[in-house]
């Protein structure tokens, strides 16, 4: 218990320190506009990757439609702030809830599907969302919405990112999270242990979509403008790559994955084609040589950092 409390305190102190240092750097303009943009993008990507990891990494439901949930959140938030002039806290809450509702709707029909069939169905559903957005004039159709008010600042981004990580971490480390992992490991055995598989699959989709909706809202109210094609198939793949790169079933892995790939895009942003080639090669190399991702299903922790990750990696690899 004392050990747990010490860890908790250490985590709180670390979070507060990260928040304060970055806030200071922003205040003194050491983190300039350009860096700040990439930092915010990184945080949005972390939220997306961690929430997809809950669905795909922990519950084992292979989803290729995460961008669809993000799109719902982004559009709801944009319409509420731009067209209805509602306050941002309300908009972000509504984004999360509407994405979660869509998550339930996506979760229900996909219950009967597994593996690649589920992947292709979620891909289809998110494409349908995008095509519908393309055809609604109220939200700007293909040209999208512009001049969305910018409400997102560092406190917002930080709170949402840290909140997502903490809530999903806590969920995973509870009886509910164990049920999700058990479904991933062996759904027939999980059922025989009294787990209502349908309930948990939908729950995972709902929670995952909820946070993707938040990411969408942050995106819309930071970047001023959005259009449907930003939420296509490639965006879903992008998020999946972050999760896979970091390790399916590792929350810290998703953070590392999001950071690595956001950094890669930042460095190569003037060479978009080359960036995609590298991206593709990275995917192939990871799958061929380390299919479990950087961290596998281990978590980066204080203990691990101190000891070096040798023994933890040894128990978790393969």
């Amino acid at each position: 218990m004392a050990d747990k409390r010490r860890n908790l305190i250490r985590n709180i102190v670390t979070l507060a320190a990260i928040y304060a240092i970055i806030q200071l750097l922003i205040s003194f303009d050491i983190i300039d506009q350009h860096l700040q943009l990439n930092l915010f993008l990184l945080c949005i990507n972390i939220i997306l990757a961690v929430s997809l990891n809950l669905i795909t990494g922990f519950t084992g439901q292979f989803s290729l439609g995460h961008a669809g949930f993000m799109a719902i959140g982004a559009y709801v938030s944009a319409v509420m702030t731009l067209k209805l002039h509602l306050p941002f806290p309300l908009a972000i809450a509504a984004s999360a809830v509407s994405a979660a509702i869509v998550g339930v709707l996506v979760g229900i029909p996909t219950l009967r599907l597994r593996g690649d069939y589920l992947a292709i169905a979620t891909l289809g559903l998110s494409e349908i969302i995008r095509i519908i957005a393309l055809n609604i004039d109220y939200i700007g159709g293909a040209s999208g919405l512009a001049d969305i008010p910018r409400y997102v600042n560092w406190p917002w981004i930080f709170a949402m990112t840290a909140g997502t990580i903490i809530i999903i971490y806590n969920f995973i480390h509870s009886s509910y999270g164990r049920a999700c992992i058990a479904i991933r490991e062996d759904d027939i055995a999980a059922e025989s242990m009294g787990i209502d598989i349908a309930h948990y699959k939908i729950l995972a989709f709902t929670i995952g979509a909820f946070f993707a909706g938040i990411a969408g809202s942050l995106y819309a109210n930071y970047f001023y403008f959005l259009k449907p094609n930003a939420f296509g198939f490639m965006k879903s793949i992008d998020i999946l790559v972050m999760v896979v790169f970091g390790g399916l079933g590792s929350i810290t892995g998703s953070v590392v994955g999001a950071a690595a790939l956001t950094l890669l895009s930042m460095v190569l942003q003037d060479l978009p084609t080359l960036r995609m080639i590298l991206y593709a090669l990275l995917l192939l190399v990871i799958m061929l040589y380390r299919p479990q991702g950087l961290l596998g299903n281990a978590e980066l922790s204080w203990k691990l950092l101190k000891r070096g990750d040798k023994d933890a990696a040894a128990t978790n690899s393969k």
Partner: peptide, 12 residues
């Protein structure tokens, strides 16, 4: 999933 991601990588 590894195979499918490889296919996506190949496609890109």
């Amino acid at each position: 999933i590894a195979l499918l991601i490889t296919a996506i990588g190949m496609s890109l």
